[in-house]
C-alpha cells in the first residue's frame, strides 16, 4: 500500500516537472481554465451577495394583524400570547387601540382631525415578526392565512409581492449561473482534453516503447491524469485569486454606495468551503478532460 502511494507521489512530482518544463504553455492553459472558472464563480459570488441583501429585506417582512374592534384588550393580549407560542414567530407586539391612536396622532399630523371624531376609529394591531430572517414568501403566506382564519382577526396585511418578484429574479439568475457554469465546465474539459491530447501525441514514441516493454494503459495514463488534474487545480487557484482581486477592487465603491443607502453592507468573497469546492471542481474537471482525451488516444497508439 505504501509503495502504491509512493509510486503515485512519484508520478505526481513527475507530472509537475513535466508542466514546469514548458512553463509558458502550462501557464496559458492554467490562465484559460482560471478565466473560464472565474466567470461562473464570480456570478455565484454576486448572487450570494444579492441574496444577503434581499435576505435582510426578507427579515424585515412584518405581518400586521388588525383585530376586530370588539376584541377586548385582554383578549388581544391573550391572542398575542397564543401566537407568540408558535415556533415560526420571533416576536409579537400588541399595539392597543389607544396606543395605535397615539402613534397615529404623533406620526400622521392628523391629530386634531381625529379629535373631532367621537370614538377611536383604529383597531388594535399585532405586529408580528417571523422567526427566521430568511422566512420565504410561501411560509409567510401560510402564516398569514392561518392568522386570517382566527376569529378575532379582522385583516392580515402582508406585502409579499415585491419579495416574490425579487426572489423570482434571483431564481432566474441562479438558473442562468448554473447553465453558464455547465457550459463553461464543458469548455474547460475540452481545453484540458486538448492540451492532454497534444501531450499524448507529443510523447507517442515513449508511449509505444512503454507498451512494448509491458506497461499497462493505467501506467501510461497516470502521468497524464495527474497533469490534467494539476492544470485544473492550478486553474481553480487562478480563478480564486482573480475573484479575490476583482472583489478587492470593488470593495471601496460598493462600500460607498452602501453608505449612501445607510447600510454597512460589505461585499463578501468566496468563503473557504466554497473556495475548496471550486478547487475540487477544477481538479475534477481537469482529471475528467484528460481521462477522456487519453482514453481516446491511447488506444490509437500501438507499437508497430
Amino acid at each position: 500500500m505504501t509503495s502504491y502511494l509512493l509510486r503515485h507521489l512519484q508520478v505526481l512530482f513527475y507530472s509537475l516537472g513535466q508542466l514546469a518544463r514548458t512553463p509558458f504553455a502550462s501557464l496559458v492553459t492554467v490562465a484559460v481554465i482560471g478565466i473560464s472558472l472565474a466567470l461562473p464563480a464570480g456570478l455565484y459570488v454576486l448572487l450570494d451577495n444579492m441574496q444577503r441583501v434581499s435576505g435582510a429585506w426578507d427579515g424585515a417582512a412584518q405581518l400586521s394583524v388588525f383585530l376586530k374592534r370588539d376584541v377586548s384588550e385582554r383578549a388581544g393580549l391573550a391572542l398575542a400570547q397564543k401566537i407568540r407560542a408558535r415556533p415560526e414567530i420571533a416576536s409579537v407586539n400588541y399595539i392597543s387601540r389607544e396606543a395605535a391612536l397615539a402613534e397615529f396622532k404623533r406620526l400622521s399630523g392628523f391629530g386634531n382631525a381625529l379629535n373631532a371624531l367621537d370614538g377611536n376609529p383604529l383597531p388594535a394591531v399585532l405586529a408580528i415578526r417571523p422567526a427566521s430572517p430568511h422566512a420565504d414568501a410561501a411560509t409567510l403566506a401560510r402564516l398569514g392565512k392561518d392568522l386570517q382564519a382566527m376569529g378575532e382577526v379582522e385583516l392580515v396585511q402582508l406585502d409579499l409581492d415585491w419579495i416574490k418578484r425579487l426572489n423570482a429574479i434571483l431564481d432566474l439568475a441562479r438558473h442562468g449561473v448554473w447553465l453558464l457554469a455547465t457550459v463553461l465546465a464543458l469548455a474547460l474539459t475540452l481545453i484540458v482534453g486538448n492540451t492532454i491530447r497534444l501531450a499524448v501525441l507529443g510523447r507517442r514514441t515513449e508511449i509505444e516503447i512503454i507498451k512494448l516493454v509491458g506497461g499497462t494503459d493505467a501506467f501510461i495514463r497516470r502521468p497524464f491524469l495527474y497533469s490534467g488534474l494539476l492544470q485544473g487545480l492550478g486553474g481553480a487557484l487562478c480563478a480564486w485569486a482573480l475573484l479575490a482581486l476583482v472583489l478587492a477592487l470593488l470593495a471601496a465603491p460598493v462600500q460607498e454606495l452602501a453608505a449612501l443607502y445607510g447600510s454597512r453592507f460589505e461585499l463578501r468573497g468566496l468563503d473557504v468551503s466554497a473556495g475548496l469546492a471550486l478547487l475540487a471542481l477544477g481538479a475534477l474537471l481537469g482529471w475528467l478532460g484528460s481521462r477522456l482525451a487519453v482514453g481516446r488516444h491511447l488506444r490509437a497508439i500501438e507499437p508497430r
Partner: peptide, 15 residues
Amino acid sequence: PYFRRGIGVVFQDNK
C-alpha cells in the same frame, strides 16, 4: 502488457 513482460524484444532500431 502482462504477456509482453514475459518476452524480451530487441529491435533493429533499438527503440
